[in-house]
Design a protein around this nucleic acid. Sequence first.
DNA 1: ATGGCTACGATCCGTAGA
Length: 257
Amino acid sequence: MKLATWNVNSIKVRLPQLLEWLPKAQPDVICLQELKAEEARFPRTELEAAGYTCAVNGQKTYNGVAIVSRSPLREVVANIPGLADEQKRVIAATVQGMRVVCVYCPNGQAVGSDKYEYKLRWFAALRNYLSAELQKQPRLAVAGDFNVAPEDRDVHDPKAWEGQVHVSGPERAAWRALLALGLKDSFRLFEQPEKVYSWWDYRMMGFRRNAGLRIDHVLLSEELAQSCTSSTVDKAPRKLERPSDHAPALAELSAPR
DNA sequence: ATGGCTACGATCCGTAGA
């Protein structure tokens, strides 16, 4: 079972790249973020032709998430239940006995801004939601764009980024509060090369200089983490013409015994 | 110099991303 997450930054623009990437990477489940499209404009037909079924929580212009899967998606739940939020950032579904939560966490814009406060409130709500989900289903995966680089080694230039949004103390504390639920950052279950990132600024030749951040993550509950055999970032789609600024992150799980 | 891309929607620039 291969689980992927990819912030596509417009499903309309990136559909050709997604359709090219799927047969190469062969993911079983893909969590997509920043669709920037309403559900009616989601390319369901094209993805079904590629062998996938979709659960979509979209909106016009901003945000929007989807889970794309080879196996049927059951018990689909959109958004964080009980959280008043116009922004479509979450969708969850059960696939092959595993609960998958796809998240597009707020950007936060700048430390101290209204959007930053919203980000921290939102993370607190996410934590409560995931805590309840774990009670119900111990086989839980949370994949998406978290907009937090958990440690300095996830940042190309920690000095330049010190105290900035995505790395600030409160954001990293919110990240650790998710781990404290018993979730593991699948990437850190393994020895990894240095300077692996999942996002690079479009400007200043960010990708060419590998000036990036690792902000796209696959979190796994203890039970799923035990069956995880690899966790990587696939930089290949970021090298194409007209790429998303994010690359896909993947985790591979062996069949449970 | 606080910029530099990219996507979107209704313009001919503003908002947002990170």
